[in-house]
Write a protein that binds this DNA or RNA. Structure first.
Length: 513
RNA sequence: GGCGGCGUAGCUCAGGGGUUAGAGCACUCGGCUCAUAAUCGAGUUGUCGGUGGUUCGAAUCCACCCGCCGCUACCA
């Protein structure tokens, strides 16, 4: 009836359209994109999903303020997100919008199933309501017992009929999930948090709203729409054909990893698996919560709207450096700091000096000593080649850290090879071999350098696709670097002898100043 | 308050019972000249938050203290 899973399926969170892209959301997209490109490079069929979350009261209100319909409003903003994704070379395979019929129809079907199974029921929600905020607050949020934290005015007790999901029923199953599949919620600190939250006892959650209409209608009750979170989470299955295309769904689901921010762990690690359990759908393999990008010690987010736009950094440093910097400088699972100075530092040290200069010095020597063609690697390997081979291995093996979302370690290890080639050049001193007329030694040395650069281009391509392609072309190689396939493509000796190299423009010219 | 985490070179961090505690950056000195004053080599700095304990031996385990942080349910 249906096929078998044969696709590496990864997702970012879907982005709330009311917000504009900032370096925090861009961080998540880039990381997911690097993982997607890395898996493709390793020969996997990959499905990379991202998109926008477009329902909810907030959006309805913003639209109203602008004198437009919610639908016009979201259509207007979505390009802001797709533009940033294009700018950052995000290679998504699908972009879902929660307002698309392919989503809304399946959300209704999914929820109807939970309702039919008795996991959704109508009850009265009572809570402290602030009229100015038009929102309910929990007891812990109130100041002095009954003051709204935003307006410092007394809240009133209100009640409304809501549909509830029987979350509490799934607590034992969730605990078993965390215990039997520790990889489900990563990193471990987050798993501990989630576990202790669930262990403390779960209440059923309200999943519908009747005070506004900008949402997916509850199919069995015209007065309600689904609360955005429960609509949004379902994008992960609606986008890959749940309820619509069983074969496509079977090939992709369950997701291999949902990459999300640490602030939205609960919906992803508690509500989401419980909903899937209730519907009898397989659970995702992993939810990975990344840390925040801090700017001067503060969270970069919607609150500091004055924050730096990704485009500003791309203008100054280029897209390759943008992607490299955040993954090399920060530990993905932890909070990390962005600063203009550290980004300049990374650009100059790692990109211009280490990698860019290496490419340039090798290409220059091939140009002036070998007439611009890749020489024959005549002669037997010596100690210098052996030392380089060790660094080569570290880079190839180290890049696999990307599978653990440890981008920092992967790049650290790749740079061992970059440094290794620089050391190799010093050790062999090809300029001396050239003067001595040691043709065989010179040929072997420069061939080895070009061949190592080819490998570096392949390995670095998921992180810096443009720079990798530029380097690939300078080396006179055929085809596209993105079409190479690991692990074979990282083996030594694959560079064709006689290819014509071209120095061209510097890969990473020094920054002005 | 409860649960959890962190505090290691000037900076960012790794390590985590066993000889003289590590990396990168920064800094100093030296080499080289193919290269984007780049690259290569050598070197300096640390009471591993504090106190006490377990141990033949602790940065690494335990207790307490100090400082910082996360979670402790329905604004996305």
């Amino acid at each position: 009836m249906s096929g078998e899973k044969d696709t590496f399926f990864l997702t970012t969170a879907i982005y709330y359209v009311n917000d504009l892209p900032h370096i925090g959301s861009a961080y998540e997209m880039v990381a997911a994109d690097v993982l997607a490109r890395w898996r493709r490079l390793n020969g996997d069929r990959v499905h990379f999903l991202t998109g926008t979350d477009e329902h909810g009261e907030k959006i309805a209100r913003s639209a109203e303020q602008r004198g437009r319909t919610p639908s016009e409003h979201v259509d207007d903003i979505v390009p802001r997100w797709t533009d940033v994704m294009a700018l950052l070379r995000i290679s998504y395979d699908d972009f879902i919008r929660t307002t698309q019929p392919r989503h809304t129809a399946r959300v209704q079907e999914f929820m109807q199933r939970l309702y039919d199974r008795g996991d959704i029921y109508l009850d009265t929600y009572r809570g402290a309501y602030c009229v100015s905020c038009e929102a309910y607050y929990g007891p812990g949020d109130l100041l002095d017992g009954d003051l709204c934290p935003v307006h410092r005015r007394p809240v009133e007790q209100r009640e409304q009929d809501n549909y509830f999901f029987r979350l509490s029923k799934y607590a034992p199953d969730l605990l078993r999930l965390y215990d039997e599949h520790p990889e489900f919620m990563q990193p471990e600190v987050r798993r501990n948090e989630v576990r202790s939250f669930v262990e403390a006892g779960l209440q059923d959650v309200s999943i519908s709203r009747s005070s506004f209409t900008w949402g997916v209608p509850v199919p069995w009750d015209d007065d309600h729409v689904f609360y955005v979170w429960f609509d949004a989470l379902l994008n992960y299955v609606t986008a890959v054909g749940w309820g619509a295309d069983d074969e496509a769904f079977a090939r992709r689901w369950p997701a291999d990893v949902h990459i999300v921010g640490k602030d939205i762990i609960r919906p992803h690690a508690v509500y989401w698996p419980a909903m899937l359990m209730a519907a009898g759908v397989a659970l995702p393999q992993q939810v990975y919560a990344h840390g925040f990008v801090l700017v001067s010690g503060e969270k970069m987010g919607k609150t500091n709207a004055t924050g730096i736009a990704p485009a500003q950094l791309v203008d100054h440093f280029g897209v390759d450096c943008y992607r490299y910097y955040f993954l090399r400088e920060l530990s993905f699972g932890q909070d990390g700091s962005f600063s203009w100075e550290s980004m300049e530092q990374r650009y100059t040290t790692d990109l211009a000096n280490d990698l860019g200069n290496l490419a340039n010095r090798v290409l220059t020597m091939v140009t002036s000593y070998c007439g611009g063609t890749v020489p024959d690697p005549a002669g037997p390997p010596g100690e210098a080649e052996d030392a380089l081979a060790a660094d080569w291995r570290i880079a190839v093996e180290g890049m696999a850290a990307i599978d653990r979302l440890d981008f920092k370690k992967a790049l650290e290890d790749l740079w061992v090879l970059v440094g290794g080639v620089n050391r190799y050049v010093e050790a062999r001193a090809p300029w001396r071999l050239h003067k001595q007329g040691a043709g065989n030694d010179l040929g072997r040395c420069l061939y080895t350098c070009v061949d190592a650069l080819r490998t570096i281009a392949v390995l670095v391509s998921p992180v810096m696709p443009d720079a990798a392609a530029a380097l690939w072309s300078k080396l006179g190689l055929d085809g596209a670097v993105a079409d190479q396939c690991l692990p074979a493509a990282a083996a030594a000796g694959l560079t064709p002898v006689g290819a014509t190299v071209e120095r061209g423009a510097l890969l990473f010219p020094k920054l002005d100043e």
